[in-house]
Amino acid sequence: MKQELIINEKEYSFDLIERGENFVEFEISGKKYHFELSKKERHAAYLTSKEGTNRIGVYQAQGEPLTVLQSGNEFKVSPKNSRSSKKKKKAGSMISPMPGKILKLMVVNGQVVKKGEPLLILEAMKMEHTIKASSDGVIEEVFFSEGELVQGQVDLVRLVSKEKK
């Protein structure tokens, strides 16, 4: 049975051969893998194959991809087409990366900006973060004024990119 997974935003397909309570067997581009779940601890598991045992870290919050930690490297695994595997980024909008305060506004409504041009400075965790234009275009609306507190993941300005016009 052909299946597809997203690992760190990239697609991988494999054939599932068999899956039991404590083992799994599958094939990736002609290569067969057999893993046994040797031991499961809280947020850690030992997966044994004929090449040896991998101690991995595992964690999953509801609705989020499965996090698999392998010797310090992190892998986010989710089924293809699931909600959590889709990118949340909206084009043409500048989003506050985290809660903070608008320290300085460098643009006004209607201003023409170049890609990478600083639009505003957000202060969060006592550090300054410069929000830059994601593309060439015109600032249609700035949603906040200087000194205002903003939450994380909210639109800060609406930029209409040149290509669209």
Binding site: Y12, L16, E21, F35, L37, L47, I56, V68
Partner: peptide, 17 residues
């Protein structure tokens, strides 16, 4: 790493996991 990630994912639905 891909193989281990897939194995972890496939086993993660199981009660034992």
């Amino acid at each position: 790493e891909v193989a281990v990630s897939i194995a972890a994912y496939l086993l993660s639905g199981k009660k034992s996991f």
